[in-house]
């Protein structure tokens, strides 16, 4: 049980790290949304799920599982809202053929 919890926590950290690297490396706002919306959702779910597992069955772990549920619901929603707002504001997505390097 503790081994599984440890694996989950380490994997969660790994995904969050990948998300951060993605935000730094990807070419434009829309691509960064992918890194933020996906890696962070899974990373946080794994990390807090692992913590809940090492805690065992208690009120604290139930709260952690609630946090996981709310993060997995709200993170994709926020990702979509940000992307839509950027699109409405007229931010043109970067493309490989477009030539110019986005910020």
């Amino acid at each position: 049980m503790n081994v599984l919890a440890g694996v989950m926590i380490v994997l969660g950290f790994g995904f969050i790290l990948a998300g951060v690297i993605g935000i730094l490396r990807l070419p434009d706002f829309y691509c960064r949304l992918h890194a933020m919306g996906k890696c962070d959702t899974l990373g946080v779910a794994l990390l807090i799920g692992g913590l809940a597992m090492s805690e065992g069955f208690s009120l604290a772990s139930a709260k952690m599982l609630l946090v996981v549920a709310f993060v997995t619901l709200s993170n994709p929603t926020a990702t979509h809202a940000l992307g839509r707002a950027a699109l409405r504001a007229g931010l043109v997505p970067w493309t490989r053929t477009g030539g110019e390097k986005g910020s």
């Binding site: 990948a18 690297i21 993605g22 996906k38 899974l42 493309t95 490989r96």
Partner: peptide, 23 residues
Amino acid sequence: VMIASVQVAYVVLHPRLPVDPRL
């Protein structure tokens, strides 16, 4: 979601950053 995260992590950690974004 698992596949998605692994894929994004792979693309991000790839040295040549193989992204080709499309709408």
